[in-house]
């Protein structure tokens, strides 16, 4: 957001949310209108700094005259629109989306909001059966669209569970936690980095985030900007530092502080948030509402912090 308005003023529209007349600028989404009203709306694939792709469908609302529910995150408000956010239909679909996701993906590291919504909507992911065992490494990457990969044991709910991919020193890809929100693909592509190292491959339940031929990141186009980590909502993409500490049981957010500073590497002036635990930087983020970064960084700002804390004896 620029401090000086650079766009012409937008026309205001009147619409109705849960019976209350709201006035929003033209182009505002239903989600914007709901947030203006203080209506708590669950989201998963939505992020303030990315183009909404409305894939998760957990933010759906009812719009009078529409045959199906509509995604609040991407649908713009039209004059006179009558929106309901708390009908049985809306609550049912939101709950089911949470259950379907929870039954197929490990969402334990999703935001605290997500867990709160799961409780509020009384989502019970285990009603589809116990989750299946993790697949062998690479098995999901070989699944061929249109060729049936059935359920060997229908009493267990098929999942995307699989071993963590560790192929570089900076971050890991734990696709058993991937909800396929497309955020990393957007951040790697046209929404931020324009590197296009990853895309969605495969189809249906076998769809997955992949490099070409599932090659390791070091031979892919990846430039290690880490913007995919910055937008991942479920911890599927994670700093190696965080992943290793979690594995060792030493990761403790209660003991962490966040220090805001400006990246020292170049003149762009990206704002950094240094997450520090036990006097060591454990990960770096940038505020999504920052004018300079919109939350996105480059490899230097994201990962180039070791010089701050590497002791002299470590340097070679």
């Amino acid at each position: 957001m620029s401090a000086v308005p650079v766009a012409p003023p937008r026309r205001l529209l009147d619409a109705e949310v849960d019976g209350v007349v709201v006035r929003v600028p033209e182009g505002a989404t239903i989600l914007d209108a709901c947030r203006d009203q203080g209506i708590d709306t669950p989201t998963m694939c939505y992020a303030d700094n990315l183009t909404p792709i409305n894939a998760c469908r957990v933010c759906v609302v009812e719009v009078e005259g529409a045959r199906t529910l509509v995604p609040a995150c991407s649908r713009t408000v039209e004059a006179g629109m009558k929106i309901r956010t708390d009908t049985d239909r809306v609550r049912h679909s939101r709950r089911l989306v949470m259950e379907l996701l929870g039954s197929s993906v490990d969402t334990s590291l999703a935001s605290s909001d997500w867990h709160r919504w799961q409780d509020e909507y009384a989502a019970a992911p285990d009603r589809f059966g116990a989750p299946t065992d993790p697949m062998e490494a690479g098995e999901r990457d070989r699944r061929w669209a249109g060729h049936h990969h059935g359920s060997p044991d229908p009493s267990r709910a098929e999942t995307v569970s699989q071993p963590v991919k560790v192929d570089n020193e900076l971050y890991v890809r734990d696709y058993g936690r991937c909800v396929l929100c497309y955020k990393c693909v957007e951040a790697c592509g046209t929404d931020a980095q324009h590197t296009f190292a990853i895309a969605v491959a495969g189809r249906g339940f076998d769809a997955r985030i992949s490099t070409e031929y599932a090659v390791p990141l070091d031979v892919s186009a990846c430039v290690y900007c880490g913007n995919c980590i910055g937008v991942c909502p479920t911890g599927a993409l994670m700093f190696s530092s965080e992943h290793d500490m979690r594995a060792a049981g030493t990761w403790d957010e209660d003991r962490q502080t966040v220090t805001n500073t400006i990246c020292p590497y170049c003149g762009v002036g990206c704002e950094l948030e240094l997450h520090v635990q036990d006097n060591a930087i454990v990960k770096v983020t940038s505020p999504t509402d920052n004018d300079v970064t919109s939350g996105h960084l480059c490899i230097k700002g994201r990962f180039g912090f070791q010089y701050v804390q590497r002791r002299k004896k470590d340097r070679t």
Binding site: A55, C56, V97, L101, H147, G204, A207
Partner: peptide, 9 residues
Amino acid sequence: DESCGQCVP
């Protein structure tokens, strides 16, 4: 088999 896989439902 034919679902594109884009949306959760």
